[in-house]
């Protein structure tokens, strides 16, 4: 069977990632065994795996909740960020006036924003999504704005020769040119989305029925269940990788024509 280049590259990437993971796990197992570390401080990978199996229902539910929040936040950030970037690309004055506030949003620590959002929006899934959006927004706005504005002079002139209006230039030149930048921004934000959702869950999950990975981590930390805590940590990493991989897959399949510029 002949494999196309995308499949070959993905297989190679998966093989390399798994090889690094196997080596890492062996080193970890060796360190715990060699230094005789207690389970509460650092359990072995096998103990973590055992905890993951024991807690599989909770972990799976947490993975789904956090995954839903991260994906929702990422999708909202891509939509909102792209709209903002399009506005910024059309008006220099609006860009100058508003872009610093987008940067400001990025510089304010998410742990400071989350409690405020809980006051305004409650201990809800919506709050987790809102925090995720805030964390994910900047790379998208920054990337897409750059993409929309980074036009080659001759190509812009080509559109000017035919007196193409602002809308036609945006639709036929600027947006397709910016897809590559959007993908780059979304990849960065995909990793941030999981972080944003988990940090929000640290606050939102306390004392509620919300059951994201962040909530589980807070609970297991309080109970000194280090093995389960590490299992949750791996679950969140898997979630981040899955999100990143999905964006990558999208770029290499459906959006390939626009990304390979």
């Amino acid at each position: 069977m002949r494999l196309n280049s995308v499949t070959k590259e993905m297989l190679l990437s998966a093989t390399l990632v798994i090889s690094v993971a196997v080596v890492g796990l062996l080193v970890w197992e060796f360190i715990v065994w060699h230094f005789e570390l207690p389970k509460a401080l650092l359990p072995t990978p096998r103990q973590c795996l055992s905890a993951a199996i024991d807690q599989r229902t909770a972990l799976l539910e947490g993975l789904v909740s956090t995954g839903l929040a991260a994906v929702s936040g990422l999708v909202c950030a891509v939509t909102l960020g792209s709209i903002l970037a399009m506005i910024f690309s059309q008006s220099r004055k609006l860009r100058l006036a508003l872009f610093p506030y987008v940067i400001l949003l990025q510089t304010v620590p998410v742990v400071a924003i989350a409690p405020l959002l809980i006051i305004w929006s409650g201990y809800t899934f919506r709050t987790v999504v809102m925090v995720t959006v805030i964390v994910c927004l900047f790379p998208i706005v920054n990337g897409v704005t750059t993409g929309l504005l980074a036009l080659d002079r001759d190509t812009s002139d080509l559109f000017r020769v035919y007196v193409a209006g602002r809308w036609k230039t945006l639709r036929s030149l600027q947006i397709p040119s910016a897809v590559g930048h959007l993908i780059l921004g979304t990849k960065t934000s995909a990793a941030l989305a999981v972080i944003g959702a988990i940090v929000a869950e640290f606050f939102v999950g306390n004392g509620t029925s919300y059951d994201g990975l962040g909530t589980l981590m807070t609970g297991w930390q309080a109970l000194a269940k280090t093995d389960a805590l590490i299992a949750a940590l791996f679950a969140s990493a898997v979630l981040g990788l899955a999100l990143f991989g999905s964006v990558q897959l999208l770029a290499k399949t459906i959006l390939r024509r626009w990304v390979n510029t």
């Binding site: 080659d152 080509l158 020769v161 035919y162 007196v163 390979n260 510029t261």
Partner: peptide, 18 residues
């Protein structure tokens, strides 16, 4: 120009890759 009565060929082909 809005009727396409003038056309410009640049040094680079300036084709849209997509």
């Amino acid at each position: 120009g809005e009727l396409g009565e003038i056309a410009f060929v640049f040094q680079q082909p300036t084709l849209l890759s997509w």
